[in-house]
Deep mutational scan, measured.
Amino acid sequence: PEEVRRLVEELYRKGVSPEQVKKILKKQGIDEREIEKVLRRIG
């Protein structure tokens, strides 16, 4: 979803590592598979 992409990109631009991005967003209840999809697209 758009909102997940925005959150991931925001953290990524701040220099947060992909592993940390995953941890942070998982705590917020976001599906890990969604996060990984976005990270793959960015990375």
Rank of each mutant, 00 (worst) to 15 (best):
R33M: 08
Q20T: 11
R5F: 15
E32M: 05
R13N: 07
V16S: 07
L7D: 01
R6A: 09
E10W: 13
R5Q: 13
G29T: 01
I35R: 00
K14H: 10
R41M: 15
E36I: 05
R13K: 09
E3C: 06
I35C: 01
D31H: 06
S17I: 06
I30R: 02
K26T: 13
K26H: 06
L11D: 00
E2A: 11
R6K: 09
L11R: 00
G15E: 02
E36R: 03
K22W: 14
V8N: 00
V8Y: 02
G43C: 15
I35Y: 02
R5S: 08
V8D: 00
P18I: 11
R13A: 08
V21H: 00
R6W: 07
P1N: 12
G43R: 14
K23T: 13
I30Q: 02
I30E: 02
E10R: 12
R41D: 15
D31F: 02
V8A: 06
E10I: 12
R13M: 08
D31I: 03
E2Q: 11
L11T: 01
I42L: 15
V16A: 12
E9P: 00
K27V: 09
R13F: 12
V4K: 01
E32C: 04
G43A: 15
I24N: 03
V38K: 01
R33V: 10
G29Q: 03
P1E: 14
L25D: 00
E9G: 05
R40F: 06
R40L: 11
E10H: 10
E19I: 10
V8G: 01
K23N: 12
R13T: 07
V4W: 13
L39K: 01
L25S: 00
I24K: 05
R6Y: 07
V4H: 02
E3H: 08
G29L: 03
L39E: 01
K14T: 08
G29E: 02
K37N: 11
K23F: 09
K23H: 13
P1C: 05
V8T: 02
Q28D: 05
R40M: 10
I35A: 02
Q20R: 09
E34H: 04
K37M: 10
R6F: 07
Q20W: 13
K27D: 11
K14I: 08
K26C: 04
G29K: 03
E10T: 10
G15K: 06
D31P: 11
G43H: 11
K27P: 04
V16G: 04
K26Y: 12
Q28S: 09
K27S: 13
I42W: 07
